[in-house]
Amino acid sequence: MENVELLENVRALLAEAFSLPKEEIPPDLAFGGVKQWDSMGHMGVMLLLEERFGVPIDAEVIAALTSVPAICEYLSKTGDKA
């Protein structure tokens, strides 16, 4: 998947997780950047990533994927299945 397409998919996933329009998910958004991205919101994102992209989620991944760029990098390395 191209980087631009991956970024758009991640923004769409976060928009869904936080019930926000995609326009409110900037490419550099990080944990706490919107009030919905709190602890519960973060775990909602992790569950969606696991479900939609089929990537393994463990404690290290949960702690690392705290921004849109970090999520994109992880998905591109892991081999997304979107």
């Binding site: 519960m40 775990m43 909602g44 569950l47 290290e60 949960i62």
Partner: peptide, 14 residues
Amino acid sequence: GEFKKQAAFQSAFQ
């Protein structure tokens, strides 16, 4: 209802 997500979050972020 909250256990699964909150416990995992606490664990991941120590």
